[in-house]
Design a protein around this nucleic acid. Structure first.
Length: 136
RNA sequence: AACAGCAGUUGUUCCGUCGCUGCUCCCGCAAGGGAGGAGAGGAAAGUCCGGGCAACACAGAGCACCGUGCUUCUUAACAGGAAGGGGCUCGCAAGGGUCACGGCAAGUGCCACAGAAAAGAUACCGCCUGCUUCGGCAGGUAAGGGUGAAAACGCGAGGUAAGAGCUCACGACGCCGUCAGUGAUGCCGGCGAUGGUAAACCCCACGGGUUGAAAAACCAAAUAAACCGAGGCUUGAGGGUUGCUCGCCCAACUCGGAGGGUAGGUCGAUUGAGACGGCCGGCGACGGUCGUCCUAGAUAAAUGACGGAACUGGCGCAAACCAGACAGAACCCGGCUUACAGACUGCUGUUUUUU
RNA sequence: GGCCUCGUAGCUCAAUUGAAUAGAGCAUUUGACUACGGAUCAAAAGGUUGCAGGUUUGAAUCCCGCCGGGGUCA
């Protein structure tokens, strides 16, 4: 099984890397720190690493207003998560490890139509690199 | 063979790499890791009905409200389904389609405009009889005209001054009786009433307690106030006891406990009115019995991404290119409704060709 | 996931006990008034009553099925 990753890490995206707490979401939205990169609006926050939390966490949301069918919303969320899974080891984790922080990221899909996977992947890379600039 | 209708089945497949969520086994103190195997639908949708399950309420009965409405059967139950009856309708016929299909002969209401009159009848024109000052007046009548969506059962004959269910035959309708049928109902006989409207109020029959998994149950941080137990030593401060001080008590304060149950977690929650197959009963829906199988269980919510190949379609030979329906479980079932490219099967009808 | 409500001119609302031309204000257009504009006056246009069926002589209204919007349950 060839491991192509430079850090020799598996490209995982398990439940620990997701935001599941309602309180966490509300805190995140109250900070009102956001960047915009079509088709994503991204709320974010950085907290110091603790024993309980040592990884970056992410949440994807697609409004029902723009996509009426559950099939479409599921597809966007899956594409977004897949792009994050493949890219966050390279573009986000080294920077946060350097600062000993971990990030909460709320990705809000504000586009009106479903984009193909390679476009979404490029946009996710852009979002992650801009987040890294916010760190500096 | 083509086309059309109806009914039913199916609704892309395979390989590689990287992932996600449960389950089983193994390693590990743990975090986690490894292996194996599983992982969206016929509608998962709409939430339109009916249940299971749960909490609360409840002696019994009635009223109100809501729903259903030909009959019999089916079922856990239903506004579903099956078979049958009746009306309407398509058709030469065979046969098919469709129906909120109990009751306006229990009561009340409504029926605009037009029209004499829209329902206890009435009388504009007309018809007939009588009177007449020849202008009409009085009476009878509802056959005809006209109005309207609808006109006092329809139509023919008798009858009459003219007429009239006034009488009779046939026909539409209700009730009763005989016969057939489990029954709706049908045949025959007798009696009887007559506008429509109950998706108008209402009457009759039957059914419905309310609220829904954000239900319910269990574990249980932090914090506030109240309670219980122990302490409450020195100094200072509050209240009571006392004229005052000391003392004592309360209380502040400290520690512990129990209680309720918020954040959070567990459960509910996936073995069930289960699926598949055989046999038996039934016209059928469906039921009985035997055997085999275990077939998603997430919880801010898994079932995905990329690449390759095949298949189908755009398209008439090939290649290239493009596309692959409707749509995503949220406690679980039975139905209904709505969406749906294509493929396949069966039956029926029409047309053409061949024998 | 469950439940409740509402869809009428471009906008805000009537008509809702079925009754025949669906009405009012603002906005739009035209004309008058004015040197011009505003205000005012007069007139016009604008509606598949969300869509599709049914009941009825007749439906915005009654019934049924869809579609869309809003609200509510921690």
């Amino acid at each position: 099984m060839p491991q192509e990753n430079a850090n020799n890490q598996r490209l995982t995206f398990s439940k620990r890397e997701r935001i599941c707490s309602r309180l966490q979401i509300e805190n995140l939205l109250q900070k009102k720190q956001s960047i915009f990169c079509y088709p994503f609006k991204c709320y974010y926050d950085f907290t110091p690493k603790t024993e309980e939390r040592a990884v970056n966490q992410i949440l994807v949301s697609v409004p029902k207003r723009n996509f009426k069918h559950a099939v479409e919303r599921n597809r966007i969320k899956r594409l977004t998560r897949e792009a994050y899974r493949l890219q966050h080891r390279r573009h986000l984790d080294p920077k946060t490890d350097e600062k000993n922080l971990c990030a909460d990221i709320f990705l809000f899909y504000v586009g009106k139509e479903i984009l193909p996977y390679n476009l979404i992947e490029n946009k996710i890379i852009e979002v992650l690199s801009r987040l890294c600039k916010q760190l500096l």
